[in-house]
Structure formats: structure tokens, C-alpha cells
Design a binder for these strands. Sequence first.
DNA 1: TTGTAGGCGTTATCAA
DNA 2: TTGATAACGCCTACAA
Lengths: 341, 341
Amino acid sequence: MKEYITIKDLAGKLGLSIGTVSKAFNPNYSDISVSTRNRILKTARELGYVPNPFARKLLKKQTLNIGIIVPEFLHSYFSEVIFSAQEAFLQQGYQTLIMSSNEDSDLEMENIKTLMNHMVDGLIISVTKTSKNHEFLNNIIQSGLPVVQFNRVSDLVDAPKVIFNDYKWAVFATEHLIEQGCRNLVHLGLSKHIPLGKQRILGFRKAMDKHQLPYSEDQIVEAGITIADGEAAMTRLLDRGIIPDGIMAAGDPLAIGAMKILKRHDIHIPSQVKVIGFTESALAKVVEPELSSISQPTSKIGKLISQILLDQIAGKPMEKSVHLIDGKLNIRESSTGLPIQ
Amino acid sequence: MKEYITIKDLAGKLGLSIGTVSKAFNPNYSDISVSTRNRILKTARELGYVPNPFARKLLKKQTLNIGIIVPEFLHSYFSEVIFSAQEAFLQQGYQTLIMSSNEDSDLEMENIKTLMNHMVDGLIISVTKTSKNHEFLNNIIQSGLPVVQFNRVSDLVDAPKVIFNDYKWAVFATEHLIEQGCRNLVHLGLSKHIPLGKQRILGFRKAMDKHQLPYSEDQIVEAGITIADGEAAMTRLLDRGIIPDGIMAAGDPLAIGAMKILKRHDIHIPSQVKVIGFTESALAKVVEPELSSISQPTSKIGKLISQILLDQIAGKPMEKSVHLIDGKLNIRESSTGLPIQ
DNA sequence: TTGTAGGCGTTATCAA
DNA sequence: TTGATAACGCCTACAA
């Protein structure tokens, strides 16, 4: 490490004591004359002095480090949320440590421990689908560490949650297809271990029931998450002779996988089958026909989770433990037949 | 911040001095009996003691912080490289601070300053296309901070570079189209301010010359970077009556934008026009027909840049200042007419 | 083999 | 309004 200017150097150069110099950098000290403060600040700038953050962190009982753990980076969703949160934290002087669990509960545990060793002042986590770490997390929370969950949340973990209103928007997505004339719908779902996947299923059921459309359990399939998963699920459906006239997928990749198979079987989208995705990604505008989807305000979510964590750190009383986020229905050709600009 | 166990607590519990306890955690101290070391380590584990990293950072002349600055997160390329590098750093005990300049030279300067204030031990940077910060960066380097450049590099900055062999692979990409029978090629390029964009242009020229194919300057267009840029560039070409039989794009989004316009004009891909992209992304397998492209080993690049920086920090002599990375030509339907699995 | 004490750069308390 | 000094938790000569 290169040599840095210290407060002592600065004090020496100015003929002041280090105590006085220190006060100049701490705005909540008023017992220092404006002129000396300015003099100190001026030469500090000239010399390129910056207070050593580690000395500060050692003394104060906070590290100004925040940990963020997400299950994957496959969907751009997570990078978008994270970088928005990171920006907010940095503005408040907090550093962010980002880790990916890669959908592995054990690695998730490792990540949590690593972050604890770095003495983070707070933790934001989106758990893996088979997370077995709720007990450990609760211990941490009990011990006083502020934690916020988002997206993939667990009811077993006692920390505030920021989640998309999956139920509501799954209803909207399904109803959109019904409005377009679909009667024989299929839902391509995520793993049933993921609560938000369950909400999307419930939303699908709700819409079907509301419009009195009959459906069998075969029409709700646990497909997975990737394009390949979507392909496999669609293939299984076709093999069993199930040809829907509408597909409501719990994710864009699933929808795109299904579309690939349909096209391979010369089943036309959207005239024969209409398709809608979820958690819109850049892929939606690339696939053909362009995919209708539900977009989530990732930037807003990032800001919100950082704000809630910061509030907790500041000791503000929590207003509510569940924050429900709304999205947007983006209608494109895959569900209407109309090319929309 | 919650209360942490300190070395003093541990020493008290064990009836030892803090000095002895400290040595137990420092492997290069041999003047401590194996039995007491084990005893210390055991109770440390039981009590959940971890050395306070900030006290350590204050004492030692290093912060164990690394800064990474990238121009954008639009392409998954950057997230992939970064997370691979971060993993490598974390294994060596280094924290990573990631910042995006959002293609803005001023913000880039801010980012550099922020990271300097966090006293990073090293900096990895991929500069913005209009970066005006080479002088500032050189000052930092002069002052002793290890710096590594990657992807978007500047010859004006005196730091080792890790770059893709854009020239070579641009030749390959172009020759691939020529081998497929294309004679009237067009190159959709990045901004001319980006050196790697220039290399791709040179590669294109080289391949054309080598195969004695004539071309005008109109066939090398500075398109931009996004899908919309690709659309605009292709539209301009068609308006001027230029219909190529092959398109070599400097990025997947550009290729996809061009494909959109071609399809809108009922120009068939690949029978009438063959297309190849660059820096393969997830989009390549979603667009129709699937896009041939050049993939870069992002994970390997991440590992390499971290290794080079770590070596510099350790004071090892640098072997070479430019590291050239090779990629892979992934041939798909857009350039051949053959659906490839 | 173990213990002691000074110091890393900062802030906070109290005295001047 | 300014200055002196004791912490924060750790490492490391050096002494015991």
C-alpha cells in the first residue's frame, strides 16, 4: 500500500493538534472556529488527505459494510437490483459485498459466514430454493444484525421482506390471455420450493376459476427455470397430447423454451397458442414473436431494500414486515397477434 | 453493530496473554507450543472469535480492498468477468468494490476517487469510450498503486492489459462468412473511440483483402452498441440501396438489430444474408435463426485479471504488459442455413 | 514458550 | 476555541 497522509501530518503542517484537525472533519462539532476549520479543510484538499476509514471503523462500532447474497446471476433481474442497491449504499458511505450462492444451500451458508467475518453492518439476502439456513439466519438476526429479504424469501426467517406481488400479477397475466380468447391454458411454473413460484400458480388458478374455465392438474407443470427447462416441459406436454391455446410462464426463459418447441412443431404463435412470460428480461424483445411479459421495477426494488436496511441499522421502528411491489404488463405480439412498437 | 468477541475476551477465558493468542492465529510464528495453539484455536471456534479485519488493516499497510470499474452492465460480459474475478479475490482474502461508470467519463473519475478514498490495494479498470482520465490514472499508477486494464483499454494508461484478440477473431468471423459463400460483406462496428472496435474493423479488412474481395468504405459502418443501434444502421444501409450477403457485427445486439430490420424487409437469413455476432451473449440462442457468434472465456478472463493484479501487489515482476485472450467460433443457423444443435 | 508494551489513525472526553 | 490523552483490536519486537 502506498503511504497516505495522516491526520498527524496535517496537524504538524498546520501547527495544530490532531484533536482540532479531527473536529474539522466531523460536522457535529461546533466548538471550532469557522476560520480554522476552513484552513484545515483547505490544506487537507491540497495535501490530498482523506481520513483513514479503517481507523474510523475500528473505533466506531460499525464497519460500513453491507452484504448482499443472491441465488444466481442468470436472470438480469438480480444484477439490476443489486447495482441499484449498491449505488444507494455507496451514497450513504456503505460498501457492498456481493456474493452468489449459485442455488446451493451449502455455499449460501459459506457466503453468510464470509460476510459475518467481514463484520457487515447489515445483510440483504435472497435465499436459494432449497435453503436450509433459516435457523442460522435467525440466530444472526437474534444477535442483532439487521437483515432484509427480497425476491426469494422464507417465512421461516424473521426479517422484513420485499417481494413482487406475484399473485396479483399472475392473475393479470392469465386474465390477459383469457381476454385474448384463450380457454385452454397451461402454466409453466418454477420449482415448487420457491414461494414466489407458488404465488404465481395461485394467481393462475384464481384467474381460471374467476372466469370459470376448467383445468386439470396436468395443466400446471413444475417446469424449472431455464430455456432448456421450458423446452423439456413443452415437449412433455405435447407428448401427452396436450396442446394449449395459451401459455402463462413463470419466467421469460421458460416461455422462450416453450416457444422454441412449439415452433419446431409448426404450431403458430400467437394464432394457435398465445404466450406470456414473467419478470421481463432483454430476451423478450429478441425472441420472435416478441414476448409479452410482466416487468418488475428492479431499480426501485434495489432502492427500497437498501432503504429498509439502512432504516433498520439506524434503529428506526419498522413500519411493516412485507413490502409488496407492483409491476407492469407489457403486451407484445406473442399474446395478441399484433406487432406492437 | 453487534458486539464481537475480541482477542482480549479469548485471552481472558483461557488465562493467556493476548500476545500468545495472537500468535496462534499467525502461522508464521513457531515459538508457541502446539498444544496451546490448538487449545486457543479450539475455544476460538467455540466462542466464534474472528480477528477484527479492521484492526488488522489499520496495522498492516494494506486494506485488502480491490476496486473494479467497468463502463456498463448492458452486456452480460462484464458481470460474468467481474464475478469470476471477485471469487478469486475473496479466496485470497480480498474484498471487491465494483462500480459502473455508465459510459460517462466524469462518473468514471468520481468512481476512481471513491475507490482511492477506500484505499484500495489495487484497481482493475475497463475505461469508458470517451475516457479523459488517463492522466489522473497515470498519476495514481506513478504513486505506486497496482492497476490492471481489461477489455476497454487505453494505450495512454501505463498499466498491463488483458484483451481479447479482437483482430484475429474478427478475421475468423469474416472468413467464416466468406467460406459460406458471402462476397458482398458489411461490418457493423462499435464506436470508433473504442480501440477493440478498431481491431475488429482491421480484422474485417484483413479478411476481405486476403480473399481479394473489394469493398467500399460504406460497407464499414460505425453502428453503435445496442439492438436499436443495429436497427438504425441496417435501415440506413437499406435506404442507400446496400444489400449485403453477409454481415459481420462487432456485437450480438448489433447483429440482432440488423436481423430485425432484414426480416421486416422479408430478406431471408441466412439464404439471402448470413450474419455473425461477436462477444456471445444469451441472446444468440434466442434470436431466430440462432446467431453464430464469437464467445469469450469470461470466467478465465476474470481469473487472469485478478491473478495479474495480485502478482503486482505481491511485487512480482511483470512478465508481459499485454495478455491476448482467445475465444471460440460458435457456428449456428444464422450463418449457415443449417440448424445446429 | 509465554508475557509486555508500543503503536497503527482515528474519535471522544476532558482539561486548559 | 484548542490541546492532551485514552481508547478501538490487533500485531510484533523484545523481555521474562
